[in-house]
Structure formats: structure tokens, C-alpha cells
Amino acid sequence: MSEGMGGWLDFERPLVELEQKIAEFRDFADGEKIEIRDELRRLETKAEKLRTQIFTGLTRWQRVQLARHPRRPYTLDYLQRLTGCFLELKGDRGFGDDRAIVGGLASFRGRKVMVVGHQKGRDIKAKLERNFGMPHPEGYRKALRLMEMAARFGRPIFTFIDTQGAYPGIAAEERGQSEAIARNLLVMARLPVPIVGIVIGEGGSGGALALGVCDRTFMQENSVYSVISPEGCAAILWGDRARAPEAAEALKVTAQDLSKLGVIDGIIPEPPGGAHRDVDAAATSVGDTLDSALAELEQLSPAELVEARLQRFLAMGSYLEDGLPKGLGHS
């Protein structure tokens, strides 16, 4: 690795530095020499220990940082690895094409599927083009158009969720950001084809949920999903966005939290150090999850599918009825 230390998180930096040292050592030193081999083994053991030390017991805020990692794979990184063919389709047929959401026709392990997902940009130019992965209404309307099309032709749908949230701007409000999100929630609830969603990074509030009314929802190990960003929550509660780490704790935003609450169907393990350390391996795990979830859902008739989806979302909630605990999260 010839790159500098940019684009790494503070807490993973010692590990990355050590790994770079090992790589350099291996490149330049004579690997035949026994003492060098011993030294390499010693360093690798050290790296392994450091990795375990850093990545077990991550705080919720560290998970948020990993979910937002500048090197984290985005929707198109997964599609590139998971689909045999991907033909992007653009536009909402009303206003324009929102580059913060991508979608199209794909082949996936012998099946034909419709795929839609949020898309972030890697460099500055791409970030601007993708509006930092924050869609406008036309993005949600494009997604809806593609999903309805899939339903009409009996094709299952995969959604990849990765956004800070729907864009809060003047144009977005003028074009009905609320209506666009709400419409997706309503229509997705009744589409007569299997829908599997994966949170691959940030599941930011309504802007994420607008692709999230699925029969099965999974989260990658280092992804987060939340009703409000930790910064936004901290601003409201304490008038101080810097207290986001505390808000992340209170909001319980991690895959582990949501799994425990019963809101998602499973956690997709990531390679050691996170999805960005081995994108191919991360993609394989995501693909295997999509594959098995779809195989399960294909056993259901369209009517069963839609009814089960309704029941799934009706069960979401936690309250007391006549003093008795009902719903999720009472354990």
C-alpha cells in the first residue's frame, strides 16, 4: 500500500500502519532468511491481536464511523461484484434523474432481479454528482417506478440502503420530499414480489426507509439504521452536535441493537476490519444472504407475501396495552 494515512479512522490507524509496515517489510526484505520470517510472523501475530482488540467491543459511535467510512463499498461496488449483468435505468419520468439513487435490471445467480439503492460518491466530483447520497424526491420516484415495473413483470427486488437521509433543501421541499417518501412506503407495502433490503452503510431515517419496506431486511455488521442522525439528535437534546457519540448510544443504532429489538432479520458479517478491507469478501456475504432470503420468499404466493409483509410492519412497535407489554423490545 503506497497510500498515505488519509481516509482512515483514528481508531483503525494503528492497525493500518502496522499492516503497511508488514507489507513493506515483506516487499523489501529477503523472505528466505529465517530471522526475517520469524520477525514477519511476530508482526502478523501483533496485527492480529490489535485487530481483535480494536474490533471487539466497538462503541456505537465507532460503528457509525465505520458505516460512513470514506473507503466503505457503496451500492455500485456490490452490484459490480454480485450481478452478471446490470443495466442501469434512469429518471422518474416527471422531473429528472437523481444520481443519489441508482437502479436497474440485473441478473443475479441465475435470477432476474430489479435492484435499487442509494449511491454515494467516492471523490469530490462524484460526491457532488451523487449529492452525498442524499436523494431528492425524483430519486424516490425513480425507485418507485422501477419497483412497480418489477412487480408488473414478476421480478423480485433488492434494495441497498446507504444514505445520511433524504436531502433537506428548498427544491426537495418544493417537489414534495415527504410525499415521495410516503408514497414509496405505501406502494412498497403491497408490491406482489419479494423485496429484500440490505443496509450497507447508513440507514438514515425516512430517506432510508423509503427503500426499506421489505420482506426481509438485513444489516451489515458495521452498518447503522436510525430514526435521526446522532448529530441531529444531539442538536435537539443538548443543542450540541458534538455530543453525537452519546446520542448514538441512546438511540441504539447498530445492527446488533436492531437485531436484538427484532426489527431486522439478521446481521451480515463483514471481513476483519470492516467491509472496506476486503470488498470481494463483503460482497460474497451480501450475495449469499440475498440468495438464501430470496429462495425462502419464492416459496410464498404473491398474496401470502403481501399479507406477511403487512403483518411484519404491523408488529413493529413497543407499548403497553391495559398495563401489559405488547410488541417488540420487552425482554
Binding site: L185, S205, V213, V227, D257, L258, R309, G317
Partner: peptide, 18 residues
């Protein structure tokens, strides 16, 4: 959505819409 109930509040959006 009520942030004190976290993700469950978000899910009420899907529930009511469904």
C-alpha cells in the same frame, strides 16, 4: 417521529402507510 423510541418510531411510518 419520536426519537426516544429510536428505530421503532421510524418503523411507525411504514406501519401506518401499509
Amino acid at each position: 417521529a419520536r426519537m426516544q423510541e429510536g428505530i421503532l418510531s421510524l418503523m411507525q411510518m411504514a406501519k401506518t402507510s401499509a
